[in-house]
Design a protein around this nucleic acid. Structure first.
Lengths: 338, 338
DNA sequence: GACTGGCACTCCCGGACCGGGAGTGCCAGA
DNA sequence: TCTGGCACTCCCGGTCCGGGAGTGCCAGTC
């Protein structure tokens, strides 16, 4: 494919993103200094359409890019548009004021939504990529405990446990010592194995209790594969032309489904620095007109993902830059708190 | 005002809520067995309009209720429509499966959204109506602590603290003992006073550290007046006829603003069992077409509020019943975990 | 062979127009 | 006090139409 044809595609993508309207040959040849006439552009357009990069909403309308066209644009034509120094400073300041992990996540998701004018999604650090920093047992009643687990990524998980027998203060202390001894510093991925052996290590009188506790710990660790996510910027869906009223519903519904969100953020095993999934690439019917830009974050290694979600006709260079920058800053913050 | 006029108003409210369309005199006299002709109904309607209970979108259209009309309906005409036994069982089962406070709140808010087909909002138990159950200090680095506070309502708050000097394990133990000794069982409302004296009670070497800790505890307790809220069911806003596209935006924005949500849920000092705020009564411009139904919940005394938010043309009897029932069950659950 | 200007053609879009229908207000009569 | 009748108003959906934007193709030029 011709260099000029690529330029025509770029012109179409940029203009369409800016105006939300099909762009015609005349507009392209005039606004972008290609040095050729509209008729020539028309020929190139015919080629691009043939090749599947652009399409016509109806005969005698301008052209709009297809998913394939956006893909080419992102892969070969998009020069990333870095944040301004002022923006970078603002991001940094805002994030560094966070007082705990919840706050980091909340601030991050808002920041992303605001910077990109899209819906932002941030996954909490994944439990199975974290290690145990501390386990705390608090007795609520003699037969009821609250287990609080704190991970090295700052996540705090809690859970009620019903005990098979009454526990004295000393029993609780002993159990706390035991579980911490065994689990502290261990990656949660290894935890199931360790927990399985836990009961055997307790004093005989505590066997039953310890195994009840072990069972709950297992559930907290394993069954809690549901990841937590935070969402912000839903109001951006109503920006004029972002989504036509008809398709708003399924999107809003999906935003309340952790499962769908996690699928959009990408399988946790992906360590790619930045991913752009356009239209069908999401493999979700309701998101056929949606692009998702995601990045991994974490201190050193990736512990979670964040991203934004918007119409395929989004400002790719700006969005990509914003997501990348924010992911980087958040990783720094987590690094400091490690 | 005449009994029959009230019946006409009820008929208009009920039909309008059901069909979303202005209701005419003929429809009223036919579908509701009033025993009078359409012409008579027309006279009553003229009276009701004069009195401000109903209005005409335009000459020669049917009538729709005004906020004042709904208010009268709720106060004098609405017989509450209790949940079916099956629904009650489902609610109970679903809520009793919750494994911790977060889970209770999440389940509650979803349940409300699903039962009422509206947007649901649930406030976490307010900190200043809770007592301290336990304070936990976890050292992250020698000069950095994580403070975890667990309240009697099951809320878990965390916070990082930067220490002025390095702390040994023993120092941490001592501080933990100290703060728990002073604060355990105390209402958070009393906490500021107690915390202020905290530093003085520590060993002299720990004075500086204890006062840093005290400062953060104060912030956690006092400055954290921002209440936490959970929202669900935003997708219900797109139900046909719920909100016209134009006014969707500000509502979605408000749903991400804790401040606005808290204002809608009602000032925390209200102990009313159930509140219905219709249209202007919310004192918020964006919610002039919105009704908010809220209820307090809590073990014994009210510790938080929950509610549902929808168009003024909502199913009042059903919504009120649902909110009341759910609030009651949640209170029971919290009672059990106390 | 690549590019260009011209031209006929297609199709969308917004405005004007119009008739049917639903609903009203009023009035005279029971 | 209620009712049937009647003239009137206004919305709504459908149709029609002209302008405009854009296209594809073709013949001509460099």
């Amino acid at each position: 494919m011709d260099d000029r044809k690529l330029e025509v595609l770029r012109a179409i993508v940029e203009d369409y993103v800016a105006t939300q309207e099909p762009v015609g040959s005349k507009a392209v040849s005039q606004r972008h200094a290609l040095g050729v006439s509209a008729a020539t552009v028309r020929n190139d357009m015919a080629y691009l359409e043939e090749a599947g990069y652009i399409q016509q909403p109806h005969t005698s309308a301008g052209r709009i890019p297809t998913a394939k066209g956006y893909r080419l644009f992102v892969d070969r034509l998009g020069k990333i548009k870095p944040l301004s120094a002022a923006e970078r400073r603002a991001v940094h300041r805002f994030l560094s004021e966070a007082i705990d992990l919840d706050d980091v996540v909340t601030r991050t998701v808002r920041l992303l939504a605001q910077l990109t004018h899209q819906v932002a999604v941030v996954q909490y650090p994944s439990l199975n990529r974290s290690s145990v920093r501390h386990l705390e047992l608090v007795s609520l009643t003699p037969t009821r405990l609250m287990v609080v687990m704190i991970t090295d990524t700052g996540r705090v998980e809690q859970r009620y446990v019903e005990m098979p027998a009454e526990l004295s203060e000393d029993d609780v202390l002993e159990l706390r010592r035991l579980v911490n001894e065994q689990l502290q510093g261990k990656p949660l991925a290894d935890a199931p194995r360790i927990i399985a052996d836990l009961a055997g290590l307790a004093r005989p009188e505590l066997h039953a209790t310890a195994s009840a506790l072990a069972r709950v710990l297992l559930e907290t660790v394993v069954a809690r594969t549901e990841e937590r996510v935070a969402v912000a910027g839903a109001a951006n869906l109503t920006r004029p032309g972002n989504f036509f009223a008809g398709s708003l519903r399924p999107i809003l519904e999906a935003l309340e489904e952790e499962v769908v969100l996690m699928q959009l953020l990408g399988r946790a095993d992906s360590n790619a620095l930045l991913t752009v999934r356009i239209g069908d690439e999401n493999n979700l019917d309701d998101f056929r007109e949606t692009t998702v830009v995601t990045a991994g974050y974490g201190p050193g290694s990736v512990v979670g993902h964040m991203g934004v979600l918007g119409p395929t006709r989004m400002d790719y260079p700006g969005t990509i830059a914003a997501v990348r920058a924010v992911a980087r800053y958040v990783s720094e913050i987590l690094e400091q708190n490690r």
